[in-house]
Structures are given as structure tokens and as C-alpha cells.
Design a binder for these strands. Structure first.
Lengths: 145, 145
DNA sequence: TTTAATTTGGATAAATTAGTCCAATTATAT
DNA sequence: ATATAATTGGACTAATTTATCCAAATTAAA
């Protein structure tokens, strides 16, 4: 698995919240965990982390729930999400686990892994939450399991 | 981290054993764990798994140790190693953790992740242990941490 | 033949990740 | 006002991964 469960759930959750936010709606924990098929209590914890990082916003009390502010939605990418729940996610580390590995002191797999690593990093940095939510809205992609 | 610690250590260990095997030498646990900078007892467990999968060979008693048979060395790739210590490693799974995700029912990231996933799989399937060991022998790449 | 260096195997421990449960707080809607 | 539906926070549990320790078995060398 490339991403942790925490990251997987968080990405699914934020994409779903983003979709709702696009329509000016907020959504509560229960519906989120039903829609993305994630354990409710665990998802709650993740939403708290996402909130602490300023990624989602929550409103308290009856008919409370979660949403993502318009401006945020424009800027958020997958790195932000992964970092919020897993701490610094770094896909630039050596695939063999060598700390010293670099272009100058390469591990035996360095050259072959280089591009993949770069592409993975790019994917996380360049994939915008907004883009994913809009895709979802078109009905061409899915969040169902 | 892309690979588990178990896989990282195992790859480093087998590459080192392969290097020695190329020169007709076997090498013992202690030296392996020193050279690849891995915890000795844990590495021992991994070597047992690799042995059970027929990847490495061991000789018992004083001046015992590990090596890899010539023929094996020709055929082994990274998949074999990762599978031996981590069970079936599958990098074809959905990055968002959706079981239903496929070309027909894609998750929002499916198209962007598709190539990366393919490249990762290719890397593991096509990278031969022998190639890595030979590279190491040239002194252009390193196993040091 | 004894000693010493090694693998083997089993039990156990520590750390991390994944997940649950419940009480307290908050605020809307009846 | 009050009941109700929601987030919040803390303690707890479970599962998996990453290790450690030690005794037994094996075999080469002294």
C-alpha cells in the first residue's frame, strides 16, 4: 500500500466534503463515513486532524458538519492532506532505505527509481482537491467501494 | 516509505549476499547485518524467510553462512524478495484504497496514478538481483548508509 | 574430542498503525 | 425551554510491524 489507511480515508473524505462544498452544503461525520465506507470513529479522529491543519472547517451542534472553504479548495492538494494526518510524507527517500543515497552516492536502484519517485511526488503535489471533486461531480469517476 | 523495513533489509541483504556469491563466497549473519546496517536478530528472521522461499541457501555450523546459487541468481528479481518477506506485494491496488477501482469504475485519481503504478510494478518485476550485485561490484553504487 | 562459531526456532517485547467507546460540549430545531 | 443531533476530546483496545533474547542444533577447526 502506497498510502496509510489514515491518508486513504482522509483523501476520500476530503474529496467528498469538497464535492458537497462545491454545492454550498456541509456534511456530517455519519454521512461521510457511509459515503466513503470508512470506520466512523476513526474518520472522526482524522477529521479532527484535518481541522487542526486548517484543511476542513467544522460547525458544532445540531445540523453541524464539515465543509471546505472556497479559497482553501482552490489551493489544497494531496500533500496537504497526507501531511496533516501522517506527518511529513516524503516520497523522496531511498527505496532501499539508505539515508545517504543521493545522485552522488547512489544505491543500486537509484537510477531506476528516480523517475518513479519524482512522479509520485509530483502526483501528490500537483493533484488538487478541487480537480478531484469536479471530476467526481461529472459522474465519470467514483468513490464507491 | 514504499517498501516495508522487512523488504528494505531483505533487498539490501540479498544484494550483498549476491555480490559475495559472485565471488564464490558465502557470508554470515553478523557480517551481513554489519555491512547493510540492519538489526542482526531481525535480519536473521528475514533470512529464514528468504531461505524458506528458496531464495538464499544456508550452511550450518562453524564457518556456515548464506549464499545464493548461480542459477537462482540469474532468475531472481525484486518481486521474489518482497513476496518472500511481506507476502503478496501488490502495487496494482487503488491509491485511494477502493477495491472496486478499475479502468471501468475509476477512482478520481485512477488515470493519474495508472502509469506510476505500472512503473512501480515493472521496477519490481524487471529489476534482477544479479544486475544490482554487478552494479555494486563496479563500485559505482553503494550499500552504505 | 572438545571448543567455538555459526544457523535455527520459539517466545517475547516494543513501537506504530488502526480502530473503538463514551462522556462532554455545542447549537439547531421543535 | 427542551430535546435532539451533531462535534470534540480523552482513554482505551486491537492488530500489525519491527524488533530482541535465548536456548538448541550443527559443524568446522583447534
Amino acid at each position: 500500500m502506497i498510502l496509510s489507511k489514515a491518508s486513504e480515508y482522509s483523501i476520500r473524505a476530503t474529496v467528498f466534503i469538497a464535492l458537497k462544498s462545491l454545492e454550498g452544503e456541509k456534511v456530517n461525520l455519519k454521512e461521510i463515513s457511509i459515503q466513503i465506507e470508512s470506520p466512523e470513529a476513526f474518520t472522526s479522529k482524522l477529521l479532527q486532524l484535518l481541522k487542526k491543519s486548517g484543511i476542513v472547517r467544522s460547525s458544532l451542534g445540531k445540523s453541524g458538519g464539515f465543509d471546505i472553504e472556497k479559497e482553501k479548495l482552490e489551493s489544497l492538494n494531496l500533500c496537504h492532506i497526507v501531511n496533516a494526518v501522517d506527518g511529513k510524507a516524503d516520497y523522496s527517500v531511498c527505496i532501499m532505505g539508505l539515508k545517504a543515497c543521493s545522485d552522488n552516492v547512489p544505491c543500486p536502484m537509484h537510477s531506476q527509481y528516480r523517475n518513479i519517485k519524482q512522479n509520485l511526488n509530483d502526483l501528490l503535489h500537483n493533484t488538487k482537491l478541487l480537480t478531484l471533486a469536479k471530476k467526481l461531480r461529472t459522474g465519470q469517476v467514483f468513490l464507491t467501494n
